Simulated assay, not measured.
Amino acid sequence: MKLTELIEKLNLKILTQGVNLEKKVEGGYAGDLLSWVMAHAKENQVWITIQSHQNIVAVASLLGLCAIIVAEGVEVEENTLKKAEEENIPILSSEKSTFELCGILYNLLNGSKIPC
């Protein structure tokens, strides 16, 4: 699924300007502990978090993540947005909880197949 389609289906707000929204999304990861995300998230995934400081951009860039989704309406710092634009990392926002976003994302990417 393309990131543009995911943005539409999740009703996400685009916080960064001039970044590539045509990336292919291959999965997702949710977490707020940066070192844990660095060890477990995979390239081409979207990352769902409530963190909003500049270090999230460094993690996303290092791992080759498609985008960062900041959940629960958390306000993202201006310097974070500027750094994300420089690094071509889309930062998106949602009022939904991390739990809701994960459930919807899982169903979108896996055709509503619930694992056994």
Rank of each mutant, 00 (worst) to 15 (best):
S52E: 13
N11Q: 14
I48P: 07
A41F: 09
N107C: 15
L92M: 07
K13A: 13
V57D: 03
L21A: 09
K23R: 15
I89G: 06
L92S: 04
I68L: 14
S112V: 09
I50L: 03
V57P: 06
V74Y: 09
I48T: 04
Q45S: 11
K113Y: 08
V76L: 09
L6D: 00
N79Q: 11
V46Y: 08
L33A: 07
K83G: 05
I68C: 09
L105Y: 01
K9P: 03
L92W: 01
I91K: 08
S52K: 04
S94C: 10
V59E: 01
I56N: 03
I56H: 02
F99E: 11
K83P: 05
W47K: 05
T80Y: 08
P90Y: 03
K9D: 11
G28Y: 15
G73K: 07
Q51C: 14
L12P: 02
G111Y: 06
L62Q: 07
N11A: 15
I7T: 02
Y29M: 11
N11K: 15
D32Y: 05
V19L: 01
E86Q: 15
V46P: 03
F99Y: 14
E22I: 00
L65G: 09
I50H: 01
I56S: 04
N44G: 02
T49M: 09
L92V: 11
N20D: 15
Q17N: 15
K42E: 13
N55E: 10
E86S: 07
E85A: 12
M38Q: 09
E75C: 07
K83F: 14
M1W: 03
K96E: 12
E72Q: 14
I7F: 04
E22S: 13
L65M: 07
I69T: 07
I114P: 00
